[in-house]
Design a binder for these strands. Sequence first.
DNA 1: ATGTGC
Length: 487
Amino acid sequence: MEPTVEVQQRLSPLLRQLGPALYELDPSFREDMRVPARIVADEELLQQMSQDHSILQLVNVTTLPGIQGFAIGMPDMHEGYGFPVGGVAGTLLPHGVISPGGIGFDINCGVRLLSTGLLHEEVEALLPALAHDLARSIPTGFGRHGRLSLDSEQLERVLAEGVPYVVDVLGLGTREDLPHIEAGGYLPGADASKVSVRARERGHDQLGTLGGGNHFIELQRVERIYDPDAAAAFALFERQLTILIHTGSRGLGHQVCTDAVREMDRALAREGIRLVDRQLACAPFSSPEGQDYYAAMCAAANFAWSNRQVLTQRVREVFSRRLGSRPESWPRIVYDVAHNIAKVETYGGKRLCVHRKGATRAFGPGNKELPTAYQRVGQPVFIPGSMGTASFVLAGRSESQSLSLSSACHGAGRRLSRAAAKRQVVGAELRKALNAQGIIVECPSNAELAEEAPTAYKDVDRVVDTVETAGIARKVARLVPLAVLKG
DNA sequence: ATGTGC
């Protein structure tokens, strides 16, 4: 990217404070801005964002054809491909653009929280065995394939039908799981024929695999409840054992994104779209390229939800083997949220294509898509911290609708690039430090461990407090790690 | 993030 970090550092004083933890850059800042850029942050987080190109990337997002209202950055925002990670933008349908860079390479990367009826102290002695069994049962790391190898018809149906197919036909899970997954684990806009042969080849044996990078499965203890009413609705209580799954659409989603960026790049001239950054490749939602990408993105999203569903079953198998088949040891889905996805949603009577890249949908109370038990308290939002730090459960507030297109943050957010983290952190020492904290680490690679060091991330407590201060969501529970499984 | 890159 052309502009320097210094440009961005000069830019942050131009941000005007609109409200608690909310800042705005007026569109007069640059003549190509169609709408303002807003950022949910405090002074410290703004300062951290100024260290990379993310604020400039957010300004670039405001130039996209059809963008409505404002582009908004979450407190965990950092630099990404074209769009910042932690960026949200809605474009007016039917002709506003859809941009693969606004969704991310890992389509429907997301987080699923499982609850148990077990207390931490009841299972403490068994944690090493549980972690070890999970590591044996679940392939982790770059390029690993799973135990399932789908034939072309099965893969096609996973892409077209998502989790309902995985439950009903493959027999992995129960019907009760479905309402506890965003969109029921299935976007009907999917068209498997729009997923390239290459993408399908990459995905056919990756269902039920965790992947690398920041993907993980964590066994956790509910350390603190902030909102007893919402916690009760989500079936969470103090000292409870929970399981958090963070993964996405693996090589399949990555290839869908790669394919679409190339196709859209070719169509830009025909559509008369001039971009400030080629990584913002996009096409009108109504165009052939826009429609093809949306159909393929929905299919990749269905694949990702299905992946988290298969992993859930692996967890359930390990738990029933080690803990018996009593109901307390059957992990139930609290909810499953996507944080790299575009959704068609209506705001102020307008149908928008809402891009959430490193941002979590955070519907407030009363939304019809939520399961009945959550209608009164709002949508569960999960914020995984970095390795060895806390994760949070939030509940979406109605105010999120006008503040942030019903969106919240998605994690702690990177502070250091992977390369910088690797230079600064010695993986073996980090492993020792985590073990000294009493955290079981199942991760074969010290290099992967170093890239995900807590020092490479922002302070998750601060990020979550900022989302709460802004009025987007409220804190429900704080979860702390007991064992982590990663690539 | 990713069968790691123009």
